[in-house]
Structures are given as structure tokens and as C-alpha cells.
């Protein structure tokens, strides 16, 4: 564990907590894409399949449970909670996210480190996470203005993988044989997809106004 990875995990945790805070306290998911949340639930479900078979550390297992629990409960809130469900913008959240799942699965079957069930699904989760934010970014452009909490959520979610890239650079130079091209390229693509959001975020958010 290094400071970059810890910062990345805390940023990721913060993004999830901000979203849960928004949905649970003000009972609203306005501006939040259910499709992105569903993709993230699939990402964690396919990435943490080894949660009971390979123990790394208490921290690792705890964080996996937090990410699994929060992503599925956010989907549940947005789909079934009567008050929250009413604030979901169904008409605008129309990105065909299932069109993202299949190509990622095919790519994982073609490009992976080992051809085993767990490894292919784990690789699939990396590819899917790289594009999972697309429905949310499309919704963001359609709804123009979003509230601060949603803006913070997207900012933290985009930032965590950027911190992971610093972690990979650090580990590459400090650990022999630490080479994971698939993880690195997927992580880079994922972070680059946030580039224009970050641009507007810094323009607007830091200026004290909402993200437009």
C-alpha cells in the first residue's frame, strides 16, 4: 500500500459516500444516471468474485464489501425507493449502456492475462469500469445544470482512478515485475474520459457556482 493508492481508495470511498448522502438525506437522485450505477454494480460484482476465496487483508475485504454494498443499494434506492425513484430522470437517462457491456465482455475474452473464468470476468470489470461513466456524462450534458453533490460525486469518482495511475507509476519503479498493461491502459482511458468534465468542473465549481 502506498499513499497514492490509499488516497485513491479514500477518494473512491468519498464519492460513494457523497452519492449515498445525497440520495439518503435529501431523498433525491436528480442528475444521477441509474445506468451508470447499474454498470458500477456489475463492475464490482465481477471484480470482487474472489472476495471469499482469496484473502488479501482486512482493509481489502472491508472496502470490497463497502463498494459492493453501496453500489447495489444505490441501484435499489433509485429503482424501488418511492421518494427517490420519483426524482429519477428516466426520460433523459437513455444511454444504451447494455451496448457497453457486450463489447467489454468480448474484449475481455480476447485480451486478458490468463484465460480463466475469474481472470476474464476481472478483466471485463476493468474494461467496463473504464466506460461506466459515459451514461452519467451524457446525462450531465443533457440536464445542463447539476447540483453540487452530483458534481462532487463525479469529480471524486474521476479523481480516484487518476490517483491509482500515480500508484501504478510508484509501484512500477519500486516493485520488480510490477507490469499490468491491461489495468494501466483501462485506467488511463477511464481517467481521460473525465477530461472535459474536469475542465468545466474547475472552471465552474471552484468559482463557487454549480457545474453548467
Amino acid at each position: 500500500m502506498n499513499i497514492f493508492r490509499l488516497a485513491g481508495d479514500m477518494t473512491h470511498l468519498a464519492s460513494v459516500l457523497v452519492l449515498l448522502l445525497k440520495i439518503h438525506t435529501i431523498k433525491s437522485c436528480a442528475g444521477v444516471s441509474l445506468r451508470t450505477q447499474e454498470l458500477y454494480a456489475i463492475v464490482f460484482a465481477t471484480r470482487y468474485l474472489d472476495i471469499f476465496t482469496s484473502f488479501v487483508s482486512v482493509y481489502n475485504t472491508f472496502m470490497k464489501l463497502v463498494f459492493l454494498g453501496s453500489s447495489f443499494s444505490i441501484v435499489w434506492y433509485m429503482r424501488y425507493h418511492k421518494a427517490v425513484h420519483r426524482t429519477y430522470d428516466r426520460e433523459q437517462d437513455t444511454f444504451r449502456h447494455w451496448f457497453l457491456v457486450l463489447p467489454c465482455l468480448v474484449l475481455a475474452l480476447l485480451i486478458h492475462e490468463k484465460f480463466t473464468f475469474l481472470e476474464v470476468l476481472w478483466t471485463f470489470s476493468l474494461y467496463l469500469e473504464a466506460v461506466a461513466i459515459l451514461p452519467q456524462l451524457v446525462l450531465l450534458q443533457r440536464t445542463r445544470n447539476i447540483d453540487n453533490l452530483t458534481g462532487q460525486y463525479i469529480f471524486l469518482l474521476g479523481g480516484y482512478r487518476g490517483l491509482y495511475i500515480l500508484n501504478w507509476i510508484y509501484r512500477y519503479f519500486t516493485e520488480p515485475h510490477f507490469v499490468h498493461w491491461i489495468t494501466w491502459i483501462a485506467g488511463l482511458v477511464q481517467t481521460l474520459l473525465y477530461a472535459d468534465f474536469f475542465y468545466y468542473y474547475f472552471l465552474r465549481f471552484i468559482g463557487g457556482r454549480g457545474v453548467e
Binding site: H12, V56, H177
Partner: peptide, 10 residues
């Protein structure tokens, strides 16, 4: 092989 290293990242 590097991939034998446990997946210690989230």
C-alpha cells in the same frame, strides 16, 4: 509470472 501476484488492489 506477474499475474500470479495476488490482486491486492481494489
Amino acid at each position: 509470472r506477474p499475474s500470479m501476484i495476488k490482486k491486492d488492489e481494489l
